[in-house]
Nucleic acid binder design. Structure first.
Lengths: 277, 277
DNA sequence: TATACTAATGACTAATCGGTCATTTGTCAA
DNA sequence: TTGACAAATGACCGATTAGTCATTAGTATA
C-alpha cells in the first residue's frame, strides 16, 4: 500500500514533466529508488498505474468540491467558498492538475475516457446542486448555461496556477468569480445548454451505483484499513447495504466516520449517494 | 510543398486518434501511401513535423479570429460574429482542436511551449482589441477579466464540438455567449486580472517582429508562390520593408491582396503588425 | 538511346520500450 | 543456526521505435 503511494507520487512528477507516453517505467523506478521488478509487484502494467492515478487524484478533487457544496454554509458565502476550495486544490496539486486536466492522451484510452467523463459528470452534479440551493426556481432555463460558465471560469483561471507559480490572492480571486457567477445567474436570458444536451454529452457513462459494485468497492477499501472505528463503521455500512436495519441518522453518522479518513472520502461519497444522502 | 501538406493532414488524423507519442512515423507514412524515407525528405525529424503542424493550424485559427475582430462590423453584431467564427472553426477543424487544445504533451517540449503561449497571446490581443472597440473607456479595471471570461466560455463550450458530434445551432450559441459577455462586461465590479499579471503570464515569449525575421518569413512564403498578383504584391511588400517608399493605403492594399490567398493570411497578419495596421 | 539528375524506396541499425522470471536478499519462527 | 517463505532484484526478451543510406525508379535533356 505504501509502495503504491510512492510510485504514484513519483510517477505524477514525471508525467507532469514529460507526459505519460514519454515517461518510461525505468524512469519511474529510478526516481523511486526501487527495481523494475518491484514496480510490477504493485501494478500489473503501466496502464494500470495510470488508471489508479486517475482514480486517486480525480476522486480527491471531486470529493473536495462536493464537500463544500453540501456543507451548510450560508448562501452569501457558499459561492466564494466553492471557488476558494477549487483553486486551493489547483494550487496544492498543480502537478496532478497539469496531468489530468491537460494531458488528454488519457482520452485516447477508452477505459480512461469514460472514467474521466464520469468524474466530470460528478463535478457537474455538484455544481448543479449548488445552483439549485442558491437560486431554487429562479434559474429554470439557464441553469445548465450557468454551470458551463462556472466550468469555463475554472478552466480559464486555473491556468494561472498550472503554468506559472505567481503568488495569487485566493480570496480576491474567489470573490471576483463569485460575483461573475452571480451576475451571469441573475441576468442571462438566452439559454443554449438544455437538459437533453447535457444528457447527450454524458451518454457514454451510465455507470449506476449498484449493490454489487458498491459491495466490491467497500471490500477493496476494507483491505487497506487497520482495526479502528473507521473499519468498524465501514463493516457496519457493508451490512447495511446487504441488509438495511439501521435508521438514517445512524447510517449518516457511520458515513461521516469514514469521511474523516482522507483516503476514504470517495467510498463515503459513493455510499452517501447509494443511500440518497 | 504538396507532400508536406499530405503528411500534415494524415498525421493530424492519427494524432487526434491516438496522440502524438503513441503515433509512429511508420503509421503516418502508411496512411499517406509513401515510404519512410520520403517522410524524412519533407521533415528532418518527427518533432519538426509537430512544430510545423502547430504553426500551420494555430496560425489559421488566430488569423481567422483576428480577421473578424478587425473587420468593420457594427458594434451590435461583432460579438455574435466573433463567437460564430470561433465555433465554426472548432466545428470544421475538430481534429486539430483535439490535438492542439487538449494534448498538452506539446507543452512538455520547451520550443513548442513558447510557440503555443505566443499564439495564445495573439489571441488575447485580438480579444482585447475587440473589447476596446466595443466598450472604449467603460472597461478600465475589468478589461482583462472579461477577456479571461471569454476564453473560459470558449474552452467550456468548445467541448461540445470536440468530444461529440451532436448537431448544434451555431447562431443560437453565438447569441447566447454574446449576451453573457455583454452582461459580464456591463456588471463586473471586482477585478482580479491586472495588466501586470497578464504581462507575467506572457513573459516567456517576447518575440518581436524584427525587420530581419519578417524578411525571412516573406522569403519563405515567396518560395511556394506562383507568378501571380499575390507574388508581385508580396515582392513589393518585401521592398517596402527594406526601403519604405509607398504610402499607407497602397501598403494596406498590397497586404489585402496577400490575405486573399488562404495559406498566406499569416504573412499578411505579421506584415500588417509590422506596419501597425 | 545514352546520360545525368532527382525522387523515392525499404532493409537496416542502434536504442529503448514494456514486461518476465530465475535468482538473491531479508525476515521470520522453530 | 536452520529452513521456509515473501520481497525484491536486474539481466534478459521480443517488439517497436526514430532515423539512415545504399540502391532503384522515374524523368528530362542531348
Amino acid at each position: 500500500m505504501l509502495k503504491k503511494q510512492l510510485i504514484m507520487e513519483k510517477a505524477l512528477e514525471l508525467f507532469s514533466e514529460q507526459g505519460f507516453e514519454a515517461t518510461s517505467v525505468q524512469q519511474i523506478t529510478e526516481r523511486c529508488g526501487i527495481s523494475k521488478g518491484a514496480f510490477y509487484l504493485s501494478f500489473k502494467t503501466k496502464d494500470e498505474l495510470l488508471i489508479s492515478m486517475v482514480e486517486y487524484y480525480l476522486q480527491q478533487f471531486v470529493t473536495d468540491v462536493d464537500q463544500v457544496v453540501r456543507s451548510s454554509l450560508s448562501k452569501d458565502i457558499i459561492l466564494v467558498e466553492f471557488y476558494k476550495s477549487i483553486f486551493q486544490a489547483f494550487k496544492n496539486h498543480a502537478a496532478s492538475a497539469r496531468v489530468f486536466f491537460n494531458e488528454k492522451v488519457l482520452l485516447t484510452k477508452k477505459e480512461l475516457f469514460q472514467k474521466i467523463i464520469a468524474y466530470d459528470v460528478e463535478m457537474s452534479k455538484s455544481i448543479l446542486y449548488m445552483l439549485e440551493q442558491l437560486y431554487q426556481d429562479e434559474l429554470q432555463e439557464t441553469k445548465y448555461d450557468v454551470m458551463y460558465c462556472i466550468k469555463g471560469f475554472m478552466k480559464s483561471y486555473s491556468e494561472l496556477f498550472i503554468f506559472s507559480d505567481i503568488p495569487l490572492d485566493l480570496d480576491q480571486l474567489a470573490r471576483s468569480l463569485a460575483e461573475k457567477t452571480e451576475i451571469i445567474a441573475r441576468h442571462t436570458t438566452i439559454p443554449f445548454i438544455t437538459e437533453e444536451l447535457v444528457r447527450l454529452t454524458e451518454k457514454p457513462c451510465d455507470e449506476e451505483v449498484t449493490q454489487e459494485s458498491l459491495l466490491e468497492l467497500i471490500e477493496q477499501h476494507l483491505d487497506g484499513l487497520e482495526d479502528t472505528i473507521e473499519r468498524e463503521s465501514l463493516e457496519l455500512l457493508k451490512d447495511q447495504v446487504e441488509n438495511p436495519t439501521y435508521s438514517k441518522p445512524i447510517v449518516k453518522g457511520l458515513i461521516e466516520n469514514i469521511r474523516l479518513q482522507p483516503d476514504y472520502r470517495w467510498v463515503a461519497y459513493v455510499i452517501a449517494k447509494y443511500f440518497n444522502m
